[in-house]
Design a protein around this nucleic acid. Structure first.
Lengths: 151, 151, 151, 151
DNA sequence: TTTT
DNA sequence: TTTT
């Protein structure tokens, strides 16, 4: 079974970083991927998709330190959907849980970085406790190669 | 900007195929990707994600003819989210609009293929008219190579 | 930096499995991906690419036990090139070092599985000792999710 | 069958652009993807892979105009291997024929751009006429969506 | 031959 | 809400 998402786009806002009671970091942000195309009259159009990104542990720490509104990032992850209830209505959120991140905005660049503290209550997607899957790429022990190859 | 999803999983049901007024085919189905892992007590667990797949034109026609419940398919596409109103409530659906499909269940295989007609009312995701993006891989004119290479 | 290869094709022969002096397993095989297209005269053509696949450790063990000539597999990995000398001539081989493998041929299927022992000398690519990179997906400790999410 | 390569790295040199007798543009360059890891003694190491990239038609024209040594690009393409004879010895080259390219170095950036004319004779990989496959993403007519969706 |  |  394969479940892989590859995105390269820009952050709509600074990441929001929280920690679990055990101190595990979780960062969330939305990422825009825009596509230019021509409509049937030949006029140039742009369509933007917004993706909910979730990063755990090491990746969340990196996001907290270095990622800002407007920054360009490459994300590789898994598509996941979770549900929660709001005002008695069941809602679904689809998120991309990142396992690889690559920051593409040069340091000192982008500016942006609004340091206004996040609102006390988040948008619906993140309002309810629910398990979410993740793998942090940077924590994976790099499989070092044996020196004694058989070929 | 890159927006790519790669899935390899099994169909939860037979595809549902509709046509626009212009006769353009659209197929939809949900696709399961399961992941086995061990929980913190070391017990094997399985977690299944369900993905909403949308195919247009040629890919929809192929799906209509050959895809059945339980079949294994490889899908490459784009992540898209659209919204609709239901009972006065705005709802969001995230879908994968396929541009490449690869059927992995050998012909005559899989069985399954429940021919029970689909319910009169679909799940929320497909209940409302909304524009959705798509590219059908098979309709792309294969770029044939010139014979007179410069190297 | 991103270096990712995604292949879905068929094994040309049974895998060849070796072990380093430390007992680490390495499996190699070639994988065919075929593409159908029409030439400029509209005649259907097929073009097959052969890829050198390398699997380490757990993945190699799985390949040894379950993979056979003709089997269909999904492979995700890294593109790597290494060089070696043969008869005083420097040669280069490009390989895909897998970090994920998904076997798509149902058990008992495929047939094929020629049990003819591999030739004493392999094709050039695997004739010389050289370091090769790898990560075995199955050995990665699955990042279990904390129960105490902050949202 | 799936044959996909995804790379994000830096150009080692300016692209070399040629044209076939029919005026079709072909650009080639090598792309570095570097990976940082720690060796078994815990010392940080870097390993760089060099990939041979080939772009056709529209993508080649874009590369010619905008890509320079050192620039960062995202490439999506196919793995292909071709052979040629040199001094009576058969040689193989593995290339990535791009079908999507995304330039990630901001305009006016990178500088580099050594305008030293390319040597009269290229490295072995490009010395011999051979057919190579390609699809230029930008030439694909964007599948416009019908307004009359059936759902 | 690149980049961080 | 981003970016080109």
């Amino acid at each position: 079974m394969v479940n892989k998402v590859i995105l390269l786009g820009n952050l709509g806002k600074d990441p929001i970083v929280r920690r679990t009671e055990n101190g595990v970091a979780v960062a969330t942000f939305s990422l825009a991927t825009s596509e230019r195309y021509k409509d049937k009259d030949g006029n140039p159009q742009e369509k933007t998709e917004w993706h909910n990104i979730v990063l755990w542990r090491g990746l969340a720490e990196v996001a907290e330190k270095y990622l800002h509104k407007g920054d360009k990032v490459y994300i590789e992850g898994k598509l996941t959907t979770r549900s929660y209830e709001q005002d008695g209505i069941k809602k679904y959120v689809t998120e991309v849980v990142a396992d690889t991140m690559n920051m593409l905005t040069p340091k000192g660049g982008s500016g942006g970085s609004s340091n206004i503290p996040p609102p006390p209550m988040e948008e619906p997607p993140y309002a309810i406790k629910t398990p979410v899957g993740s793998t942090v790429n940077e924590e994976i022990p790099p499989a070092t190669e044996p020196d004694d190859l058989p070929f």
